[in-house]
Design a binder for these strands. Sequence first.
DNA 1: AACTCGTCCAACCGCCTCTTT
DNA 2: GAAAGAGGCGGTTGGACGAGT
Length: 269
Amino acid sequence: MGRQPCCDKLGVKKGPWTAEEDRKLVNFILTHGQCCWRAVPKLAGLRRCGKSCRLRWTNYLRPDLKRGLLSEAEEKLVIDLHAALGNRWSKIAARLPGRTDNEIKNHWNTHIKKKLIRMGIDPVTHEPLYKDDQVSPQDQTVCRPDAEQVKLDVGTNGDFLLPALSCENSSNCSPTENSSNDGCQSLDQSNDPDDPLMRYIWSEAFLDDSAWNFMQGTSSTDEFSICGLSSSEDNASWLLSCKSFEEERFLVDCFVGDMDMNMLETGGK
DNA sequence: AACTCGTCCAACCGCCTCTTT
DNA sequence: GAAAGAGGCGGTTGGACGAGT
């Protein structure tokens, strides 16, 4: 059975995105905000499916994304959250600022899963694989997933409310401390300046004037367009106007910096 | 140098959920 | 309440790349 395709498949381009396509998408979203994804390809002049545009933006082009491997603190949080939530990657990603569900899912499948198996832990149930549970002391220091470690509160919308990963927590992870693991890089990896594509995409030459004004914070009208807000709204109201935790996190990352996300949960709504 | 194999991750597919009419 | 459509989600794939032989 299945649903109708989200777009006309005829003439729709697939495969890797080019720098030119990225430029069009970034310019469009920064100047018009995230509106109807179905309409984005047409309005932005892209021969792509709307879903493809959304995926490209959320997983790669968003300005608040971190790059590189997950830190040990992030990895531990992913394991704890997975023990509590299972394969609900978007819920897990919502608790890791700058990380996408796709990225976490990939990291789980390529790194964490194997690490847990090496530790003698079933990555699905988070129970010991073997009754004897022979785990080396070295491995035990990494993380012992335990669903009871994570206290769950249920929000008004039925979602779990879990503690957000704080910056201080993450900064405890130094390269030397993690030399025995799969690698732990500096946390401050947003839009890695060494990535030629990202450098190009976010360069002044790449973005058109209005988009660049947005990034420079000099535009009085465009700053809040990503959430469809007017610039006259004060900080409190634009936070409250956000439709989702994702939007809140995005705005905070962009404009506020290290604001404690827990405040948003307890006081924002 | 050439080939094979394994790993990584961006992107796609199809189903689910939510919203609108 | 039902139907339709759009966005969101999780599973999977396939190409790029590096390591090993």
